[in-house]
Design a protein around this nucleic acid. Structure first.
Lengths: 189, 189
DNA sequence: GTAATACCATACGCCACAGTATGGAGTGCT
DNA sequence: AGCACTCCATACTGTGGCGTATGGTATTAC
């Protein structure tokens, strides 16, 4: 018997996860109330009890995603003391086939709402800061660290899109390994 | 008096250009018949004389874009004999603030139609081929040329998105210069 | 000058989804 | 048992865009 428990009622989080799944694969524009309700096996009567409107769902979903992503980075990357190893771990995580990357790369081309642009800018600057910090700790000067971190982050973003374009999805673990290895050699020596 | 000639009637190309403009800034999903007609100062009676339906317009617009982009690359990049100079020109063109980049980067996150995925895959592979060829001509072995071209192309794609995210638009010519210079140093030596 | 053709306006039916209003089943509390 | 609260179904209105049908005007061909 599976561990799937037949829930009597949905929570706001259930809706958010469903929404994030749609965002990851079809973008924010594809988040629609009625289709989501159908998918979840309820009607929109349920939706409008949990959320005030469509944008409310999008907002809360992205907030949830942002928190989860931040936590992931903090726990698996920022805890590493050695800057070079930290960067290496970042490159490797960058190629891991996980949903958070899909969401990020989908949002990147979405200019439908200022909220999204704002979130994106925040996240991007935050991550660039981490990279730059690591490069600085490795001994590089400010200017180089800045340029190099921008370059490295561009590689990350670009690789995400390339993977989706060429393979239809995110790279598998094997490719992630190769990628991290090559990138490290080119951007970390 | 301006050289704008008051046209009596629209051509299919007029519609395509308007559509490409929308695609560049809001994505394929935002291409709608009636809003476009309003923008062009006509009604959809005009549209359905030139095109059979919405998707027909999208298809033909992307075809037009593809041809133009191909011509641009062939004329400004592929004519350069020296492989190193050719790559340098490519990096520089990559950061130029022109519409074709916007369209490409917008399409990259759009998985709404198999046609788009198909076009993207074609273009991407074609461009990767050019880069790989250049690296090979520079004397690098097959394997390195392949990995390095993927890296370089990732940088291109990533930089496009970064520019839109951080500055709200494409980089200006000055930033393009700096970018090309730094990238060249890192990926071309 | 007349007929054909190119181009467009108007008006229509259709559908998908947003949001509201309201009632009703289930659950826990007392 | 009775009440309140949680969660959802149903039924509605409103809006925006797709595609069609049809008629009208200007241009071109002859």
């Amino acid at each position: 018997m599976s561990e799937v428990v037949k829930k009597k009622s949905l929570t706001a989080e259930d809706w958010q996860e469903a929404a994030l799944n749609v965002i990851a694969h079809q973008g924010v524009g594809a988040v629609a109330v009625e289709p989501l309700a159908r998918e979840l096996g309820v009607t929109k009567g349920s939706f409008y009890w949990h959320f005030s409107n469509r944008m409310d769902l999008v907002k809360q979903s992205l907030k949830k995603w942002r928190l989860g992503d931040k936590k992931l980075v903090e726990e698996t990357i920022l805890t590493i003391k050695n800057p070079k190893k930290r960067l290496l771990a970042w490159f490797k995580l960058s190629a891991e086939p996980i949903q958070t990357h899909l969401i990020y790369s989908t949002l990147l081309a979405d200019r439908s709402h200022t909220l999204i642009s704002k979130i994106l800018k925040e996240i991007t600057l935050e991550r660039l800061g981490h990279l730059q910090q690591s490069y600085r700790e490795m001994g590089f000067d400010e200017k180089f660290a800045k340029a190099q971190s921008l370059l490295a982050y561009s590689v990350y973003v670009g690789f995400l899109h390339m993977s989706k374009t060429l393979y239809g999805s995110l790279p598998d673990s094997k490719k992630a390994e190769e990628y991290a290895k090559f990138v490290s050699k080119q951007l970390l020596s």
